[in-house]
Amino acid sequence: MIHIERDFKEIYNKHSDKVYRLCIGYAAGDEDLAKDWHQETFIKVWNHRKSFKGDSSISTWIYRIAVNTCLSDLRTPKRKVTTERLVSDQTDSIEITEDRTGMIQKMYHCINQLTSQNKTLILMELEEIPQSTIANTAGLEHGTLRTRLSRIRKSLLKCIKNG
């Protein structure tokens, strides 16, 4: 049991930051929501640890759980309202300020306009997660992923520049 806990702590320390930032991207900057999802993700990792068969890397498995946790929770009506409210708040802030925070808020706003799958792809890419892991997490072919990422990057840049 002690060595299982030690392994979990090691995995947690290695992936926690990236999972949190993936969640905050999904939550359009809502830190409380991101913390909930982050915690939920690692509770699931702990609970399902016996079901991990090693078919994929442990990182892929954890990112899948994180992405699916955010995706699943976003489908509930309560969460949708929260996200929509956030988007409208951020739109106001974009008009007022163009400082660092404003740029990040603008980026959250633009990411939030993407489809759920595209959100996953760009958030993982921005976290510099290897493309093979992204492809396995999202369930896409590597070639398709590369094309898709290039398209998403272009539309994201356009959105950030034009508002």
Partner: peptide, 10 residues
Amino acid sequence: LASMDAKTYK
């Protein structure tokens, strides 16, 4: 949730 990739899970 723990066993599917994002596309299949969706």
